[in-house]
């Protein structure tokens, strides 16, 4: 059984023919669409390394059947920077040393972008820690991650204020 689905990935419309319905979004990105920036850490929704945005919401791509996401918009780490200009979250992760080995980093950053969009942390580090707890960092870069998100969130709030003014 072969199945054709349409996805918009990092702004680009793509039609994907799936010869196998078992393919998850994560494996589709990594093994079939040459987008290996999204990482597999557990493949079971237990670590967050595979976090991407689907229709603007952060989810675990390892627990999503690609077939089921027909028609959605997917944003991965590869689609976050605009050309050479880093997304404010990416820049803040570098500035605050919010990573070490870098393997969980794409997931952390996509999760952070999702968190800021959701708007429930309100600059409270404790809320950020809680809402980032679905992204495990075995190296232990949590303090830098929290600081980076605080800064990026502040920057994004100020940018929004400027836009509104």
């Amino acid at each position: 059984m072969s199945l054709s689905i349409s996805l918009t990935i990092n702004g680009q419309a793509r039609t994907v023919v799936l010869d196998d319905p078992r393919v998850t979004l994560l494996d589709l990105l990594r093994e079939r669409l040459d987008l290996p920036g999204t990482k597999k850490g557990c493949d079971r929704g237990q670590c967050g390394a595979c976090t991407v945005l689907v229709d603007g919401r952060r989810i675990n791509s390892c627990l999503s059947l690609a077939a089921s996401l027909d028609g959605t918009e997917v944003t991965t780490i590869e689609g976050l920077a605009e050309g050479e200009a880093l997304h404010p979250v990416q820049a803040a992760f570098i500035a605050h040393d919010g990573f070490q080995c870098g393997y969980c980093t794409p997931g952390q950053i996509m999760s952070a972008v999702g968190l800021i969009k959701e708007g429930h942390a309100n600059g409270d580090p404790e809320r950020i820690r809680e809402l980032m707890s679905g992204n495990i960092c075995r190296c232990g870069a949590y303090q830098g991650i929290t600081e980076a998100i605080l800064e990026a969130q502040k920057a994004s709030t100020e940018a929004n204020r400027r836009d509104a003014a």
């Binding site: 976090t51 952060r58 989810i59 675990n60 627990l63 999760s111 999702g114 707890s133 679905g134």
Partner: peptide, 9 residues
């Protein structure tokens, strides 16, 4: 329950 990502899905 779970994580923000799992709750979103």
């Amino acid at each position: 329950g779970a994580s923000a990502q799992l709750r979103n899905a």
